[in-house]
Nucleic acid binder design. Structure first.
Lengths: 348, 348
DNA sequence: TTTTAACACGCAAACGTTTTCGTGACTTAT
DNA sequence: ATAAGTCACGAAAACGTTTGCGTGTTAAAA
């Protein structure tokens, strides 16, 4: 088991100095053709590669970006990662991941671990707990130390940094407008509590669409789920709530759900109650997920283009990393990725 | 924008030497209580944290593990990552990801990037292309440089390293036995071509179950898909093939599919042909995915316990990293994670 | 008063690079 | 023959740590 070879070892073997080896490998014109040839041959033979850690230390640059997300077993986030990884690799960066598991303290710990030299910048989406507690000190501290942050999807305006978001408001509005155009008269909304910014915005989009079409929103038709529960495990609770909604509002003929699972559950409950989708009830969800595509009937959704978000976030971050324009005060931008309404079988 | 503070800066401010600061922070008894108190107060004030990169260089240890997978937008792999991340963090390690995108060359490049000092060891699952080309030089080279590798799921016996696999053979056999016990007389198999080890083993499990029950396998009932195609985009091709299978073998009353998508497609085609699942045809898939749970009818599957695989792989790897027992020749182990048959609505 | 020991701290090397600068040995021009 | 200029290379510093060892000061023991 041989260790990785270093400049020092090559130097010793070839009886030259370390600096000569280093320069020879870079085809420096300070070094004679003879020596260059000799060194490069030896280096190739032993498959020399410079040690990244040493380079990082010397250059004060790791060429690695950290990504902190609440959860990885989730199509949206894994697609974002794929996007990040794609452009990161293309631009010579590695990606290191940290999972907050929706916990504030894990988010803080993870960021601290990575912030101490391991990476050049962060791409992150806040945990629900952080959103609830509204404690953003770790973000601000990280940035004050000169480490750039790009946030995506779950953002708050209090934090001054680059952001990549989806137009939740317009996406939701479009979806509801589609239902209205499809002759739905009584459109229910299944959403989350308001502290999650995206849920809030989608709810507003729903209301705006109703308003513009002179439909009076009814509180009865709006179901706000407590999403601190993991509904992958408490599916029955979710379904029971929706069933209750449907039963007490028989006139419902359209449903807009702010995520995939809510939408699927709505369809499931509808079927259970003997209602046909899309004939009796039309359903639209909000996501990029795989469930929508393979559901029966397949689900019409607002697509978020998660991968594109990841790509954009990575580009923004690397741009920031690579310009040391500390000159004028920082300029932050918020990029809005447009949504698409992907029409499938759950709408007419 | 202040840079991160270093020992040197603390030393200069407090007019002591760097080593004194370092020792004071570690409560070394070489240092007076006075100085310790002074240094620690200052360090806390400025929120000093040692630079990971410098530590990595000094200790020749990064406390980071690399994970190379073919694809991240995939429930199985993201669950594995979650498992890896879970135990890695618990044991003080970070996780850095590389995606091979099922490509041999990207796998090689990614490994080379990480192998040069960035990480202490690899956890990986081979790309399809690597499996086809059977070129494993990059794995062997990496290991010969003293970097441990743990492989999971897609493995080959030619490579000597720790492995974590699922008992594909037994899992498949159990599933088919279940179908047989449920009175299926004509059981079809939808699988991949044999170069993917897992597909091959699952096929063998299928055959073995038939054999033990004195059922003669029929070539007509075995559909081998070319999985170099991405069936997420070529769904129609997949469905057409399955439809062909069903139409030319009307007696089929059971289907075992080696993954989730094949199984779902089989159900979809069955429905299209007016066959009821599970009354006319019972279906079992193989995976941990989310589709199975939310499909209609929900799909009975062989669960792989992906997260557990990730956890085990991480433990194996870190164990190996942390024992420098170069003494006797290396001992490699292959851990088999048992599968579970999760019964849902697609079987009786 | 001298020797010894404890104490509190600094020096320097090491991890593996890159890069600036210095310096001998030649070569060329005067 | 001497001055100037190339050429080819080495020494050393720097990135931020940790740690073994040396050392000056003081206090205790002889």
């Amino acid at each position: 088991m041989k260790r990785k070879i270093t400049l020092k070892q090559i130097a010793r073997e070839l009886d030259v100095s370390i600096s000569t080896v280093s320069k020879a490998l870079k085809n420096s014109k300070e070094i004679s053709a003879d020596t260059i040839q000799k060194v490069q041959a030896f280096a190739k033979l032993y498959n020399y590669r410079p040690n990244n850690i040493a380079l990082s230390l010397k250059n004060r640059k790791t060429n690695t970006i950290g990504i902190i997300i609440p959860e990885i077993v989730h199509h949206f986030f894994s697609k974002v990662i794929r996007g990040v990884e794609l452009v990161a690799n293309k631009r010579g960066y590695n990606v290191i991941i940290g999972l907050s598991n929706e916990s504030f303290s894990k988010e803080v710990i993870n960021m601290e671990m990575l912030a101490n030299g391991s990476i050049d910048g962060f791409i992150l989406s806040m945990s629900k707990e952080t959103l609830q507690q509204q404690d953003y000190h770790h973000f601000n501290e990280t940035m004050s130390q000169g480490m750039p942050i790009v946030m995506f999807d779950r953002v708050v305006s209090d934090i001054k940094c680059d952001k990549v978001i989806v137009d939740d408001f317009k996406g939701a509005k479009n979806a509801v407008e589609k239902l209205i155009a499809n002759k739905c008269k009584s459109i229910a909304l299944i959403t989350t509590k308001d502290y999650v910014s995206v849920g809030k915005l989608r709810t507003q989009g729903y209301l705006e669409a109703l308003h513009e079409n002179r439909i009076t929103p009814e509180a009865d038709l709006i179901l706000k789920m407590d999403d601190t529960l993991d509904y992958e495990v408490h599916l029955e609770t979710l379904e029971a709530e929706i069933e209750q909604l449907f039963k007490s509002n028989k006139k419902i003929d359209g449903v807009f759900a702010v995520n995939e699972l809510y939408a699927l559950s709505a369809m499931k409950v509808a079927r259970k109650l003997g209602l046909s989708v899309p004939n009796d009830i039309q359903v639209i969800g909000f996501t990029d997920g795989v469930l929508s595509k393979h559901a029966t009937p397949s689900l019409t959704t607002v697509s978020q283009h998660a991968q594109q978000m990841g790509e954009k976030a990575a580009d923004l971050l690397i741009d920031k990393i690579e310009t040391e324009f500390d000159t004028e005060e920082e300029q932050f931008q918020t990029v809005v990725i447009p949504t698409d309404l992907v029409e499938r079988e759950s709408t007419k």
